[in-house]
Amino acid sequence: MTESGAWWTLLAAPAMLFCLAALAVAANSVLDARDAGRSAGPAAAMRPFLALPRALLTQPRRLPAPDVLLWRAGIAIVPVAAVLSTLVIPFGNVAVADLSVGVLWFNAMEVLTWAGLWLAGWGPNAAFSLVGGYRFLALGLAYELPLMFALISAATGAQSLRVGDIAAAQQGLWYAVWMPVAFVVYLAGVLAFGFLGPFAYPTGRDLAGGVLSDASGVEWLLLQAGRWLWLAAGAAMAVPLFLGGGAGPLLPAWAWSLIKTLAVLAVLVVAVRRLPLVRADRYVELAWVVLIPLTIAQTLVPALVDLAR
């Protein structure tokens, strides 16, 4: 049974999310070094974090007539929403607050990135950035509904929107096993709301970085942090939704949560590197014609199982 945590979980949850994200960045950097023919040691893992002092030292830039308020707000929304999503993600048997509408909360936070990235694209009054912001909206129209149906499949299986209940309902058989479509679509959704890898369309290099093209210093840092924090949050949420939460033999619940989260995170990092980018204009058609019917069919399975119980 998942319980709501004490006050210190308010600090522990973001801290753990941050560590997971940093771990993903480090792993990605090591794989980068290996591909590029450099030595792939611990030094390579630490190199991306040199961007931190660099971003803090950077002088601000003044663009002609930017929408500073919306720009800053948009950029801040991405990492802040990622942190807020951890409210309902249980670690072991403890969540910051195991809301009765936990799944909905996670979903709502993830949708906030729509606003965040679009505003981040609109704010600087720059063409590449603007196109990048709109790209995310088009991408959102494609990835969001399959993701919602994937979340609902898990909720239907447990007949509850409480994340703790969903984890507890997977006694013996993980949802990832008998709802594989929902699981895969959910993982694709994580990459999409983290705008990484195959879904890095809004920050595409063909747009000189898109929404990142005119972000420098802290703005750049927050957006980059936001996408990796989201990847970590998505990996952590996959565990209670599809992998039975903290349940497992021998080890305590928190250890199982950690192991499973790291495994999902590893899969996601590999996917980020292995898959080429999918543009929204192609993905929309696939999402609506194939993924949405598939995920609806997937939702029907737990609904029928519920009736048979």
Binding site: R205, A208, L212, A215, S216
Partner: peptide, 16 residues
Amino acid sequence: LRLRDWPLAASPAQAD
């Protein structure tokens, strides 16, 4: 740049 691990920036805002 590849051997030194100095990333290629795409725009001046991101570059040093």
